[in-house]
Computed example of a mutant assay.
Amino acid sequence: MEFGPHLLLATLEGAVTAAILALTAIGLSIVFGVMRVVNVAHGEFFMLGAVFAWSIASFFGSHPAVGFVAAILLAPLIVGALAAGADRLILQRIDYNPERTIVATIGLLYIIQQATLMTFGPDARPVEPPFNSVIALPWLEHTEAGWQVYWPWGLSVTSYKLFIIFAAVAVLSGIWLLMTRTRFGLIMRATQQDREMAQAFGVPVDRVFAYVFGLGAGLAAVGAVLVVPVQQAHYLMGHDPLLLSFVVVIIGGLGSLPGTVIAAVLIGLTDGIISVFFSPTLAKIIATLAVGMVLVFRPRGLMGK
């Protein structure tokens, strides 16, 4: 195995994982940062995004690009609306009590999972990507004649996987602009700093919380819609994204968006590289050890306050 070309391939695969993980974990981090709610059902909202993506793409079955565009626009909105409704129906009624919230979201997890099993079925369903050209990976090699470019046989990446990376960067940039440059972002940050004071100044805190809970679930659904052409929609697919999102949020710092993105990149690249050269199981073990080290030596996380 040539180390250099395979390292490039592993880095690209890790970047795809990091992109999806960053979108999913940012949603979890926003919910915790603003609402101080640990959403155990976050992985199921990810799964719902993938299931709705398959349903919408199947409905608009004339061309893969039409179905994908419809899915990326509609699925996050549907999932976000369902999450906001769950917040108004369940979490607001228990006044966001930390212990009751965890139990309530665990119950919500099983309700969503079993409802999806009864309606969607147990089979995994694929979604055709809108484009999927194979791009050979070039590599530089120094010879007696100087530096030469060659294409290692069999090493390639698809155009859709590169699209996932760029799409995730665009969405994360939009979230940063929303949080720092808009009135809604200012209200979110004010509510995060002091809920009672924001309410005293006329901020409808309950409505803001519903929007934030929906936004977090919608971001998880965006990640699911992007990844479902690479994987397949399945009613049990929310387990791993939930666990990895918690790993990322703990390492980056609870409620810290920059820390979450940095941790997602580190975990994603590590997972991709170790999975290619060793095994996916070893990558998960290292991620778990990283969480333990952070909790021991820096409980606030990389950028937590």
Rank of each mutant, 00 (worst) to 15 (best):
E2C: 01
L7A: 13
L8V: 15
L9K: 03
A10G: 06
G14H: 05
A15G: 01
A15K: 01
V16Q: 02
V16K: 02
A18F: 05
A19R: 02
L21R: 07
G27Y: 03
L28H: 04
L28R: 04
S29W: 06
S29Y: 05
I30L: 14
F32H: 11
F32T: 08
R36E: 09
V38A: 14
F45D: 00
A57D: 10
S58F: 01
P64C: 11
A71R: 02
L74P: 01
A75G: 00
V79F: 00
G80V: 12
G80C: 09
L82R: 00
A84R: 04
A86K: 04
I90R: 01
L91V: 10
L91A: 11
Q92V: 05
T101E: 07
A104D: 07
G107V: 09
Y110E: 10
I112W: 05
A115Y: 03
T116K: 03
L117M: 05
T119S: 08
T119P: 00
G121Y: 01
R125T: 03
E128N: 12
E128T: 15
N132S: 13
S133F: 15
A136H: 12
L137I: 15
W139A: 14
E141H: 13
A145D: 13
W151Q: 13
W151S: 10
W151T: 14
P152H: 08
G154K: 09
L155P: 07
S156T: 14
Y160H: 07
Y160D: 07
L162K: 10
F166K: 03
F166W: 11
A167D: 05
A168E: 01
V169A: 13
G174F: 11
W176M: 04
L177E: 06
L177S: 11
L177H: 10
M179T: 10
T180C: 00
R181I: 11
R181E: 10
T182C: 08
F184C: 06
A190E: 10
T191A: 14
Q192C: 08
Q193S: 14
E196T: 14
A198I: 11
Q199N: 14
V203G: 05
D206T: 13
R207I: 11
R207P: 00
R207V: 11
V208L: 09
A210K: 02
A210P: 04
A210G: 04
G214A: 06
L215C: 03
A220T: 04
A220R: 02
A221C: 07
A221Y: 05
A224G: 14
V225C: 02
V225E: 01
V227L: 12
V228L: 05
V228N: 02
A233S: 04
H234Q: 12
D240R: 15
L242C: 08
S245P: 03
F246H: 03
V249E: 03
L257T: 12
I262G: 01
I262D: 00
V265T: 00
I267Y: 07
G272R: 09
G272M: 09
I273V: 15
I273P: 00
I274Y: 09
V276T: 15
F278Q: 09
S279W: 06
P280H: 12
L282F: 13
K284E: 13
K284W: 09
I285P: 02
I286P: 03
T288E: 10
T288M: 15
L289H: 10
A290M: 14
V291W: 10
G292Q: 07
V294P: 05
V294S: 12
L295I: 14
F297C: 10
R298S: 06
R298M: 06
L302S: 05
M303D: 01
M303W: 02
